[in-house]
Structure formats: structure tokens, C-alpha cells
Amino acid sequence: MAIDQKTVAKIAHLARIRIPEAEQGSVASELSGILAWVEQLNEVNVEGVDPLASVNDASLRVRPDVVDDGGYASDILKNAPASTASFFTVPKVVE
């Protein structure tokens, strides 16, 4: 399926990646090319085939729901672009 400029703008917003309007056209044709190529999957009959999400047959392990790690907020904050006390800070979201 060909992707148009409007769709590029929509998915770019969903992905929180800014794509200037002037570039949306070329991105649209690039993505359309890739999607046209993956569409050869339509040739494959997948009737009755279950999706494979993980190659590990066994179900994921469970562990006791207890806190067994943590207590080093200052380490965690070391790479933060902005922080105050023991919090990450972001631009104002509520007026």
C-alpha cells in the first residue's frame, strides 16, 4: 500500500519524530517502496498458522513479586538532562 504525505505526518507524530513538511513527500515515497517490497508476503498462504511472537516455546518465567533491587536514585539520575532533588524534570505540562 502506498503511503501518502498525510499518513507520513500522522505516523511521524505518533512516533514523536518531527519531519518538516518539505521532506514528507520523499519520506512517503521511500516508505512506500519498502512496503511495496514487503507486500510479497501476500503470496504466502497462512491459513491456520499461528503467529510466532517468540522462538522460546516455554512460557516466560515468573518470579516472586518483591522488590529486590533499587535504592540508588542518584545513580539513576546521573544521566538525566535535567533533574531536581530526586526527580526527573520536564517542560511544564499543566497550566
Binding site: H13, R16, A80, P81, A82, F88, V90, P91
Partner: peptide
């Protein structure tokens, strides 16, 4: 927010983008 590059933006969304 938690690590890596941050560019400035007026709003949270603008900062993300």
C-alpha cells in the same frame, strides 16, 4: 527525559519531537 540528548521545546511533545 531520563538519559541522552534533550532538545528544547515549548511543550513536552515539542521537546520529544
Amino acid at each position: 527525559v531520563r538519559f541522552g540528548l534533550r532538545e528544547t521545546g515549548e511543550t513536552l511533545d515539542a521537546m520529544y519531537e
